[in-house]
Design a protein around this nucleic acid. Structure first.
Lengths: 231, 231
DNA sequence: AGTGGTGGGATCGTATATTATTTCGTACAC
DNA sequence: GTGTACGAAATAATATACGATCCCACCACT
């Protein structure tokens, strides 16, 4: 009656959820038998779920050794964030023409709520609202592949950054400001390319801020590779 | 001795290969037991492989019913190609600064070979060389995620278009021409954004040509959504 | 003390068997 | 003639069991 979800699906969703919400933090070792027992299923569906999560990059897997939640790694962070910027920028541009005035209003309301969280230090809420904000932007996206890429990127970032990946101290206020500008652009019916770059650079600036704050990885150039920016 | 690949991996690679080369054409029904027997393994690893391929979009899967190779569908084609254009454009821009003069020379050689295939009608060879061409472009890409997205896109297109997805009658010659221009841009050390858009529009023009040739899907606008283009 | 080998424990990998679900054909009733 | 209900066959889904592999600690030998 409850849509009779398969046990593989159950294992997949449960593990993914636990990675996202931090119950399984980066490096946590995922033992098939233990998880299977815990969920009341056999090891086979758990293994299947873990292989899927491996394909998404959420867990690392080694044959005959086991799986663990993907580790926190600045380089990982950079390329993932870069890819997310690419995909989100595109998704924004494609979605914008399909957004209703009501959609824009909802996005503004969420952004206002984000501004309120700045009064207190609350990275988790900030990140959650940030996801909601972008979710509103993308919900009219007619390209399901791109949407899927966005969601995978988010799942990765959540796993890597423990639920606060959008929040960089000293950058949050600008982020809210840029959101507002982005909505203005959308309302003004701006050019698709202009929108895409605005949305992309919004993420890339967060990336730069993060790298500046936590230190850039070794050989990777910190300039964000693509955009209008100053070289 | 042969790196002792797991049977799941074997099943995965074999099925993917057969989808790519057309042994399993779109719509072909993948029956667990039959494939398992054929490969000399049990049904469990085959099931796992099929679930992974489902996650990549290469096969469609329905619970308790079975799997089949993803069907040919103009809308599918459009969004996949659009996504591929996005990702390839970005990959080109990111890779370009890392390309050596030798890399560019190799790409030119492949492009010359493509020009030769225009003498005869040979879509399969054309598409293969086209993949080689872009592979050279991307092999210096420092972002593995983006590369992975490219490869998945290619696999999808192969599955959907039966090994000739880059070839649209009447467009091949322009394609070769645009490749040459792209290489010129790279050699001239062009701006990253300029490169990205050039590479993206190269794919999008192929998409438009395809849609014009085979007919556009129903409600989807044929203009390629993003780019400098004439609106 | 350092190095190489060896055994045990833990864990994954897969085959087999069982169960649950769906589908399709057939027969019966209307 | 058509629609429905029932049953058998096909197939996927999972559990269980066993085998293969890897890691680690301990011990012997140098």
């Amino acid at each position: 009656m409850t849509a009779t979800v398969s046990k593989s699906q159950l294992a997949y969703r449960t593990i993914k959820e636990r990675i996202s919400d931090g119950s399984y933090s980066p490096g946590y070792r995922l033992v098939l038998g233990r998880i299977a027992e815990e969920l009341g299923v056999s090891a086979v569906p758990v293994r299947e779920a873990i292989r899927l999560l491996e394909a998404e990059g959420l867990v690392q897997f080694e044959r005959n050794v086991g799986a663990q939640v993907a580790m926190l790694d600045p380089t990982e962070y950079q390329v993932t964030m870069q890819t997310l910027a690419l995909v989100e920028g595109f998704a924004t541009a494609v979605s914008a023409p399909h957004m209703t005035p009501d959609d824009v209003a909802r996005a503004r309301a969420i952004n206002d709520a984000m501004a309120l969280t700045l009064e207190h230090f609350d990275p988790a809420t900030f990140t959650r609202l940030n996801l909601d904000f972008h979710a509103v932007l993308f919900e009219s996206c007619p390209n399901p592949h791109v949407l899927d890429l966005v969601h995978r990127g988010w799942a990765r970032m959540r796993a890597l950054r423990e639920s606060t990946f959008s929040f960089v101290p000293g950058r949050a206020r600008e982020s809210v400001q840029e959101h507002a500008e982005l909505l203005d652009l959308i309302e003004s019916g701006a050019d698709a390319l202009e929108l895409e770059l605005a949305a992309r650079n919004h993420r890339l600036r967060t990336l730069d801020a993060f790298l500046a704050h936590y230190g850039a990885p070794d050989g990777v150039p910190t300039s964000s590779t693509t955009g209008e920016g100053e070289r």
